[in-house]
């Protein structure tokens, strides 16, 4: 990669160095392939088991069937579980964008006393693991009789979601030239018009990216939902956890079928997300946390 642009004196060194690099390159690529194979095995084992009739030892199941999907759908009442998941996810996305984007705008455009303290307060919910603040949060939500219901699950999931939207949106707004707003104001636009006609269209790609990332995180968020959900407010991932920890009552294939449904819904979200967000950029934005 760098050898092409190197200065001529380095060219003489090239031949011995390439020999020296080779084993290292093989080890690195080998490690990557090994990791990807394990990943394939982990996901593949679940997918194949969910389509198999019986699988006790042997490389593959004895026969193939899709009827586990029907039984798991009925027995775990997945229709209502998916509805709850969707309701929670959409509510969290909408509220976190509505609350987070204006805050991100203020943080991006103004430098005021106490800004650093505020930034730390917004960072903490992301940096502290969910279980640590989830236990006190669930206690408070139970005290106000919110936990065990849909509203409690939504509130708990908003705790990391709002700061996440702020973190993703602040650098995004910073890169929009404030002169555009100034020009609009010069032309007589009111604040409301600036927000709806000038900033809104410019912010839509960033808001879309933030919304999809929050959606993925909320559907995958186990701990907070687990701590606050009641019997009829479980999301898919929590229902999956309960079915695994109660294994033995249900056929393993049913659980795996449920896991596949979960994986598929996550994959659809992921593919959608990757159309708008580049993974390395996403992480560079996480870097801004510091």
């Amino acid at each position: 990669m760098t050898t092409l642009t190197e200065a001529p004196p380095a060219a003489e060194e090239k031949a011995p160095r390439r020999v020296a690099l080779r084993p290292g390159a093989w080890i690195v690529w080998g490690a990557v392939v090994f990791f990807l194979l394990i990943l394939l095995g982990v996901v593949g084992a679940v997918v194949i088991d969910s389509f198999g009739t019986k699988w006790f030892g042997g490389w593959l199941p004895k026969g193939w069937t899709t009827h586990w999907y029907g039984t798991t759908w009925k027995e775990f009442d997945l229709g209502s579980v998916l509805t709850v998941t969707l309701e929670v996810a959409i509510a969290v996305v909408v509220v976190s964008v509505i609350v987070g984007v204006p805050a991100a705008y203020a943080l991006a455009r103004r430098d005021f006393p106490g800004k650093r303290v505020l930034m730390v307060a917004f960072l903490l919910p992301i940096l502290i693991p969910p279980i640590t603040y989830g236990v006190p949060l669930a206690t408070v939500l139970y005290k106000f009789h919110l936990a065990g219901r849909l509203s409690g699950v939504i509130l708990a999931n908003l705790v990391p979601a709002v700061p996440f939207v702020i973190l993703v949106m602040t650098p995004f707004i910073e890169q929009i030239d404030p002169k555009i707003e100034a020009a609009a104001r010069m032309c007589g636009a009111k604040t409301w018009v600036i927000f709806t006609r000038i900033l809104g269209p410019l912010l839509i790609p960033g808001m879309l990216a933030a919304a999809i990332l929050v959606l993925v995180r909320t559907v995958g968020m186990f701990e907070l939902t687990f701590l606050t959900a009641g019997a009829d407010s479980q999301t898919l991932v929590v229902a999956l956890y309960y079915s695994v920890s109660a294994a033995g009552i249900r056929a393993q294939q049913e659980i795996d079928a449920m896991a596949v449904i979960y994986t598929l819904s996550m994959l659809v979200l992921l593919v959608a997300a990757l159309r708008f967000v580049n993974p390395t950029q996403l992480v560079t934005q996480i870097k801004e946390r510091d």
Partner: peptide, 21 residues
Amino acid sequence: TILVVPITLGTVLTAEGLLAF
């Protein structure tokens, strides 16, 4: 892109897959 997949799969599915694999 492939490497982002396990982040989104989450711990529950990874655990389930590990049990089988």
